[in-house]
Amino acid sequence: MTAVDTAPAETATGGGARLARRAFAVRELGIALALVLLVVTTTVVNPRFLSAQNLKDLLLGSTILAILAVGQAVVVITRNVDLSIGSILGLSAFATGAVFVAVPGLPIPLMLVIGTALGAVLGAVNGGLIAAARVPALVVTLGTLYMFRGVDYMWATGRQINAADMPAAFLGMGTATVLGVPVLALFAAAVLVAVGYVLRNHRSGRELYAIGSDPAAARLSGIPSGRRVFYAFVTSGALAGLAGVLHAARFGTLDANAGLGTELNVVAAVVVGGVAIFGGSGSVYGAALGAVLLTTIRAALPVLGINPFWQDAAVGALILAAIGLDRALSARVARSLRERKAHV
């Protein structure tokens, strides 16, 4: 842009901005659309796919992944990553069983609080190391992935906790429904709405986006980056802890392997959901949609008569398609900004 004719150039950038906004809206819509398409296709092949029971199973199956994805999205938006969530889930799930073995009459809400708090403490370990010692999150959470899982193994020492060791009411929560909606899915919905609300409407939430968009600029703007990132990891840990309790309620049988390898699935859900892996953009709604989409694919493949061994491959292809699509969209927006600017 030059000094001589700023006005037309600015009108042009306004047009580019509209296009950019539309692209952002399209992103979450795109996942929803893909989801609808998948469900419709599968239902055409087999109408039972849309039965109440199957829908319930789908929601139930998505719940834990969605909760983890919401937490992960909060972290990824700040340009970090939390690889330890699978281990936190495992530890929290085993702790749930162990606590019930020790205190059989413990009220269920208290158990939820204990699990979430345990997760928050573990998340604080991550966040503390990352924020205070200023070391990369990928390395720290890869380290705590091993550490937390190791602690889990040492605690479990090969034991298994069975459904019989836990209160029936607790296990009932794993399958109960309210108006046909699984109780566990309600937990996920509550988490999603709460976190989404904070990210959109609170200064601290907006600051997470700022940190992920440009960490250096965030520091210069006086944003308490260290504290915000710390709390992002605490949130991610707390949600993984909550997911651990729900995992225990849903599956009933617990050993030290709960949630093993989940971290990559969760990152996949977040990426498919349109959260930029280098931070600054995306939403928890997209991440949750991504989790539902991944779960639905796994459920739909057998119905569509596709060898279930294709599951992982389909998920992988979806991740590549999602990030490829994001890139293509942003490249188009950038090109249109450039060309409009040139041809005034």
């Binding site: 990559l264 990152v267 996949a268 990426v271 061994f309 294709w310 599951q311 992982d312 491959a313 389909a314 998920v315 992988g316 292809a317 979806l318 991740i319 590549l320 990030i323």
Partner: peptide, 10 residues
């Protein structure tokens, strides 16, 4: 991460 899932799936 995508090809991790893709290749293992294949």
């Amino acid at each position: 991460i995508g090809t991790l899932a893709l290749y293992r799936g294949l």
